[in-house]
């Protein structure tokens, strides 16, 4: 359970998040929508405790994380699996070592076991052939998928956080990622997907949160989203009219 209670956050003098309050259960499939630079990534960073709010509380499973130290936060972070917007693979390590990173860090697996596990994870995301590649040799979509595989190796998360997993990908790859996201949450695990592609959000999520100028302007299901009369949302979903899929 993630609860934001009147959270404010600013970079320098620029306020990015204003008095934001919401709560998300760990089995919910939530999409956070909003334009570029509205603070979507910032919200994910706040959940992970990577940045601290100026005021307000962020409560995760009943614990306020805003006052926790880096050491104490480790436990909280283990509950989530975050995939960054850019993928953020370690560029000095090849794909295999990237995926194996947490296995080496936290388990005492032998080389064989690691190899098998990494193969398995890469197969799940469909890039097994790229095992020996360096990150700079990967395409955007592969990068994203390896990054998902790496975070799967990290822990058994309670919830997945994806930062724009499909942006900049061709429709086929985007579709694959959506399938992967649904696949991973099959056993009732929730996720938060941050995106500005409504099509993808509608495919995977069941609850939608819309941000505008750092404030929550919409929170509801797909039905409500499609019939919302908020102008910004209408602009967002007009994309669907062109595609002719308004009646999904």
């Amino acid at each position: 359970m993630i609860v934001f209670d009147k959270v404010c956050f600013s970079y320098g003098v620029r306020q990015i998040i204003k008095d934001l309050s919401f709560s998300i259960n760990s089995d919910e499939r939530v999409a956070i929508l909003g334009g570029s630079g509205e603070g979507k990534t910032t919200i994910l960073k706040l959940i992970m405790g990577l940045i601290k709010p100026d005021s307000g509380k962020i409560i995760i499973d009943g614990e306020d994380i805003t006052g926790k130290t880096e050491d104490e936060l480790r436990e909280v972070r283990m509950k989530f699996s975050l995939v960054f917007q850019e993928g953020a693979l370690f560029d000095s390590l090849n794909v295999k070592e990237n995926v194996a990173f947490c296995l080496r860090e936290y388990t005492k697996m032998t080389e064989d076991e690691i190899d098998r596990k990494v193969r398995e994870l890469l197969r799940t995301v469909g890039v097994e052939h790229a095992m020996e590649f360096m990150p700079e040799e990967l395409s955007g979509g592969m990068h994203r998928r390896v990054s998902i595989a790496r975070s799967l190796a990290a822990c058994e998360p309670m919830m997945f956080l994806y930062d724009e997993p499909t942006s900049g990908l061709d429709p086929v790859n985007a579709d694959n990622i959506c399938k992967l996201i649904l696949e991973l949450s099959k056993d009732g695990k929730g996720f938060i997907i941050v995106t500005h592609k409504v099509v993808d959000a509608l495919r995977v999520a069941s609850r939608f949160i819309f941000l505008k100028d750092g404030e929550l302007v919409f929170d509801g299901d797909s039905e409500k989203l499609l019939h919302s009369d908020i102008p910004d949302i209408q602009v967002f979903i007009s994309e669907l009219n062109y595609a002719g899929v308004k009646n999904v």
């Binding site: 972070r77 850019e86 953020a88 860090e105």
Partner: peptide, 16 residues
């Protein structure tokens, strides 16, 4: 470059 590419944040996310 690791900071800018979110690699340092990734380490923190992994509890390192």
């Amino acid at each position: 470059l690791m900071v800018l590419g979110h690699q340092v944040d990734t380490l923190r996310v992994f509890g390192v």
